[in-house]
């Protein structure tokens, strides 16, 4: 028996909007730790890892570990029927091939349940080791989204370089080239407007902008984004999901021969 009640149901709606462009089908895993997902895009270039910790749910019952295969477009269709203020409850019986999404309006005057068919998905699970990163940039998520969008109108790839001067996003294309430098800026009114750069050593990596733009679909989840870079590893672009977890996007770099 599985029963997860999320008072801030809009978080789940935003999570689905953030990942459905990158991944078509995925297994949602439920355990005592929480509700999680790990899935790669079809070309194995990008990976999304989601964790919503059990403590973040108002009610979390998961009698045994359960993996539920879902088509994310279909989940998104179901969740779009929930109001932004609705409480969302996920329910599944042991051995069932369906999951039920229950939507309750805040004043309990409307209760809806939507049952969705589950599917069998063979998914590869990657072991992602804890790693030390050469540079970690924390910046406003809207600013990062704007940079990715702007640069993709010029070129297909972005070079992200972190030095003690700041973080530089560069691209080049047929019509010209562009460089955007963001310097560390902690003298702001609100902490979420700060740009904070922690650098162990300079790093410069090239990534496909198409994927970066896809990651920025998570912008409504968090005012800030954290970009962790190391010359030996895929980049990690992380958005916090309130105080209950995160969405992490991993992207393999492009490398010159």
């Amino acid at each position: 028996m599985l029963e997860l009640r999320l008072v801030q149901g809009s978080l789940l709606k935003k999570v689905l909007e953030a990942i459905k462009e990158l991944v078509t089908d995925a297994n949602f895993d439920c355990s005592a730790t929480g509700f999680s997902l790990q899935a790669m895009d079809s070309s194995h270039v990008a990976l999304v890892a989601l964790l919503l910790r059990s403590e973040g749910f108002e009610h979390y019952r998961c009698d045994r570990n359960l993996s539920m295969g879902m088509n994310l477009n279909n989940v998104s269709k179901m969740l779009r029927c929930a109001g932004n203020d609705d409480i969302i409850t996920l329910k599944a019986d042991d051995g069932s091939d369906t999951v039920t999404f229950m939507f309750e309006s805040p004043n309990q005057d409307k209760i809806a349940d939507f049952e969705m068919k589950l599917m069998d998905i063979d998914s590869e699970h990657l072991g992602i080791p804890e790693a030390e990163y050469h540079a970690i940039v924390k910046m406003p998520s809207a600013e990062f989204a704007r940079i990715c969008k702007d640069l993709s109108s010029i070129g297909d790839t972005v070079v992200i370089s972190v030095t003690k001067e700041g973080v530089k996003f560069s691209t080049r294309g047929d019509i010209g080239n562009a460089n955007i430098v963001c310097r560390q800026n902690t003298t702001v009114d609100k902490p979420e407007e700060a740009t904070i750069i922690e650098m162990q050593e300079p790093v410069s990596l090239t990534f496909a902008l198409r994927y970066m733009n896809s990651f920025t679909k998570a912008t409504p989840l968090s005012n800030t984004v954290t970009i962790s870079l190391s010359s030996e590893l895929p980049v990690v672009v992380e958005y916090k999901v309130a105080d209950m977890g995160y969405i992490r996007f991993y992207l393999a770099p492009k490398i010159e021969d």
Partner: peptide, 14 residues
């Protein structure tokens, strides 16, 4: 020439 790496070049299958 610039090549796109994949995640399996970095991470191992569990």
């Amino acid at each position: 020439e610039i090549f796109q790496q994949t995640l399996t070049d970095y991470f191992t299958n569990k």
